[in-house]
């Protein structure tokens, strides 16, 4: 069965191009949307497996849409497509549950490969995203009062992430670290999982602090 994809982008030209590429490759485009509200309304109706999401869309923005979709359906894979690569937004979307990130200038082949990979639950990391995530875990580890619940990267995971950030493919990483391709994939998946867990811990702590303050 072909992968059910939804495309969310406020630029019709771009949306049509992506939709055509996906359809030509035999994927099933089950819905399109031009803004956050439409995206969430149609998402509930069409239940796609993969959402191709532009970050800069009219309210609610890509980060909020990602969070809402993942909350509704934890199995959904959100692949962020961003033209401007606003770093903070990309990181926020991935923390909110996105499975991957691709710049819009990526070729059709790269896009299709990325959609197929996220559909398999395999995170798509660009070197840029890996750099951001490395920075984020570094920031977490520098916190003045480390939380024992806080997920941390193992040395091996940090090593893998560094190599991704230096532009190496999983195959190259597997070769360099003498690991199987699958093991490298698992490491990257765990890294993403930990980042999203950290986000939930942070949100919960924030909610508790706010709750206590209000009492």
């Amino acid at each position: 069965m072909s992968i059910r994809v939804m495309v969310v982008d406020d630029h019709p030209m771009w949306r049509d191009a992506v939709e055509r590429d996906l359809a030509d490759a035999g994927l099933d485009v089950v819905g399109v949307a031009a803004d956050g509200r439409q995206a969430l309304a149609r998402f509930a109706a069409v239940r796609p497996e993969v959402v191709l999401l532009d970050l800069q869309i009219p309210e609610p923005d890509g980060v909020a849409v990602t969070a809402a979709m993942v909350e509704q359906d934890p199995e959904v894979r959100v692949l962020i497509l961003s033209a401007s690569g606003e770093q903070a937004d990309v990181l926020a979307a991935v923390k909110a549950g996105a499975t991957g990130y691709l710049v819009k200038s990526a070729s059709r082949e790269e896009l299709l490969a990325a959609v197929r990979r996220v559909a398999d639950g395999d995170p798509v990391f660009t070197p840029g995203l890996a750099g951001l995530v490395l920075g984020e875990f570094q920031r977490i580890s520098e916190a003045p009062e480390p939380d024992p619940l806080e997920p941390r990267l193992t040395d091996r995971e940090t090593e893998v992430l560094k190599l991704v950030a230096k532009g190496m493919s999983y195959r190259q990483i597997a070769e360099r670290l003498v690991l199987s391709h699958r093991t490298v994939q698992n490491h990257v998946q765990n890294i993403l999982g930990k980042l999203q867990m950290h986000n939930r811990v942070e949100l919960t702590r924030y909610a508790i602090e706010r709750g206590l303050d209000e009492e």
């Binding site: 630029h11 191009a17 800069q56 033209a83 401007s84």
Partner: peptide, 21 residues
Amino acid sequence: ARVVHDGVLQVLALVQRRGKE
């Protein structure tokens, strides 16, 4: 400016992609 830039980047990315093809 960000809105404008984003629009320009979208078009540039599309031209780049289609051109390559």
